[in-house]
Structures are given as C-alpha cells and as structure tokens.
C-alpha cells in the first residue's frame, strides 16, 4: 500500500521502449529502435506506442483498434511475452524488464512478419477454415429462425469459457510446436474446434474430428501449457486439447493414430505393471519399422552407456501390484457403468 502511494506521488517515470523495427521495402533485416518517454502511472503499453507514433516517430507501425481488450488487434510481445498491448500497464512491465527501465516490444512469433509489430493473420484464418471452425447447424432449413434449440446449462458450461477467445493469437505466438512447424493446427484453432465439437447444434463433429487427428493435428501438442499460461482471457486451452483427445479415443478407438496408441499404452502398462514399459513404447506407438529406422542409432549409443530402458520382462512391477490391479479394474467397471448411464440419457 505504501508503495502505491509512493508511486502516486512519484507520478511519472522515464521509460525506454526498445521496439522491433522492420520495413520489408527498405530493411534487409530487423533492428531495434529505442524511444524514451515520460510515462505516468496508469498508462498502458499501447497508449505509450500511440504517443510515440504521434509525437516521436510516425513511421512506427502496429495494429490497434478497440483499445479495451476485446478486439484482439494489438497482440505483441512485451518483455518477451505475447499479450495485448492495450491491457498491459507500463509500470507493471517495468518490474519485468531484463535491463532496468527498458521495455522490449516485439511482434508475435510464428506468424509471417509484415512490418514492425504487424504480422500476417491469414495463416490462422486459413486453419480455422481447414478445421471447420463453425457450427454446421442441424436445424432444418425450413425451421431456421423459427425454432430454438434447447441447450442445457451443463452443455453451455462446456463451451462458455472457450467462446471468450478473441483470436489475439498470443497462444499461437507462444506455442512450442508451432515454432517448430508452421503447419501445426495451433492452440487457438484447437480451442475453437473443441468449442464446436461439444456443441449439440453442430452436425459435423465426426468430420472435424477426422481432420483434427491427422498429421499436424491434436496429437502433436507437447503439453507445454504455454498457450494456456499466456491466454489473455485465461481460457484453459489445454483442457480443450485434452478433451479433443479424449473424444478421439472414444469416438475413433485407441488404435486410430500413433498419438492414440501412445496415450493408450500408458493405460495398458499401468494396469499390467503399475510402471511404464518404456522399451516398447516406440514400437507400440509407431511400429517396428519406424522404431528401427529412427531410434536404432541412438539405441546403440544408449546401450554403450547402459541407458537403455529394460526389456519388458525385466521391468519390475510396482510392489503390491496384485491388489493395485484389482482396484484398477474395479475403476474400469465404474467407467463402464458411467458410459452406460450417459448413453441411456
């Protein structure tokens, strides 16, 4: 509290914005410009950039529209983290600077650069199209606009939070896999796909899911949680990704894709031994040929270092595995009962 009062009395601070610059017409490569302005308490990063554009350097280019955290235009990286410039307080950012007093401002990652802080959003729109990120209504054409679907609170709750997404692309920029491969579906599109797939008004669930389980789809997520952590609307994106996988296993079976097989292997091993049988995991996920081709050279090195996981017979079961197994199977019965109940509904 005293700190707040001190800041209030202090009123203003000199802040340097180190801003990423790139104009494809003249620059062969990007560089940084430093702008030092006097920033009062309560000012946002976006307002600071507006000030710089109006008073210091009119060529500085960035997108901004609603300036109130709902349109998603001003996604950029501030001190290395993707967020909205319009809802980021300069004085908060000052506490996060690597170099004291210098706030770094850079464009979002993993989308093509256009100019300065502006990146191309078309790849994201293309993916929304590829993964049918819309409701294909089951309402007969003749009844459109005349009847309502009845939607339970329970169903509404499933997608309520997901519909908060403003497509600011912060998660896209932070995604680990997208950085490694631009073809990857991307977190925002997975979130939207999930939102459509749990909506009972929609009629193309199976089609959408079939697309999602293909290469560069839902199984490529590496569970790094960066999307969720950077979401400006605090949407639990990983829960949506997990829900798509759960749905894929249930709707398409555990032998559907390498991702599904991999996930299912954990279930098998835990039931059998209480421990993961790592040695055969690659084979069970991708088959013998893939394993020999991809992992043999490395396996040789590991054998030399005695780092290879033990073959299945040598994997010691957890102590007391028998009673554990009985309990595990009892839970399997519970799950079966749950399914029967939900199908009856």
């Amino acid at each position: 509290m005293t700190e707040i009062i001190d800041q209030h009395q202090e009123g203003k601070r000199d802040v340097t914005f180190r801003v990423f610059r790139f104009n494809p017409q003249v620059d062969s490569k990007p560089y940084f410009d430093d702008y030092t302005i006097s920033a009062e308490r309560g000012i946002t990063v976006l307002r600071s950039l507006n000030y710089i554009k109006e008073h210091v350097d009119a060529t500085l280019s960035f997108r901004a529209f609603c300036q109130a955290g709902i349109c998603g235009s001003c996604g950029m990286r501030v001190n290395g983290i993707s967020k909205l410039a319009c809802t980021s307080q300069v004085w908060d950012e000052l506490d996060k600077c690597r170099e004291p007093g210098i706030i770094r401002v850079e464009p979002l990652r993993s989308l093509p650069m256009i100019k300065d802080l502006i990146v191309d959003m078309d790849p994201l729109v293309d993916k929304m199209t590829r993964y049918s990120n819309w409701i294909d209504s089951t309402m007969p054409l003749a009844d459109m606009g005349k009847k309502e679907f009845l939607i339970s609170e329970e169903e509404f709750q499933q997608y309520d939070k997901a519909t908060d997404c403003i497509l600011c692309a912060s998660c896209v920029s932070e995604c680990s896999i997208l950085r490694a491969n631009k073809e990857y579906v991307s977190p925002a599109v997975l979130l939207k796909s999930y939102r459509m797939n749990v909506d009972s008004r929609d009629g193309i669930h199976d089609l959408r899911l079939a697309e999602l389980v293909k290469d560069h789809g839902v199984w490529d997520c590496t569970h790094c949680y960066r999307c969720q952590e950077s979401c400006v609307k605090s949407i639990p994106i990983m829960e949506a990704i997990h829900a798509i996988r759960e749905d894929a296993l249930e709707s398409r079976g555990p032998r559907d894709t390498s991702g599904a097989k991999h996930a299912e292997a954990f279930m098998e091993d835990i039931e059998k031994k209480g421990k993961l049988v790592e040695a055969t995991l690659p084979i069970r996920t991708n088959g013998v040929v893939w394993t020999l081709r991809n992992l043999l050279p490395m396996a040789m090195k590991m054998i030399v270092k005695r780092r290879t996981p033990p073959p299945p017979p040598l994997v010691k079961s957890a102590k007391g595995i028998k009673i554990f197994r009985a309990m595990f199977r009892e839970m399997t019965e519970h799950v079966k009962q749950d399914h029967l109940k939900s199908h009856k509904k």
């Binding site: 209504s137 309402m139 939607i151 339970s152 909506d199 008004r201």
Partner: peptide
C-alpha cells in the same frame, strides 16, 4: 426471427432454466 437464426447457427446465448434463450 433474427435472434433465433443466430441461435440456430451457433451463437452461445445464455440460457433460462427451461433451456430457452
């Protein structure tokens, strides 16, 4: 008509206890 049409194509309207808009 327009509110229902939007409902039909996916707008997540909040719901009443009887599950209508």
């Amino acid at each position: 008509k327009i509110i229902r049409e939007l409902e039909n194509i996916g707008t997540p309207w909040s719901r009443m206890e009887d599950n209508t808009i």
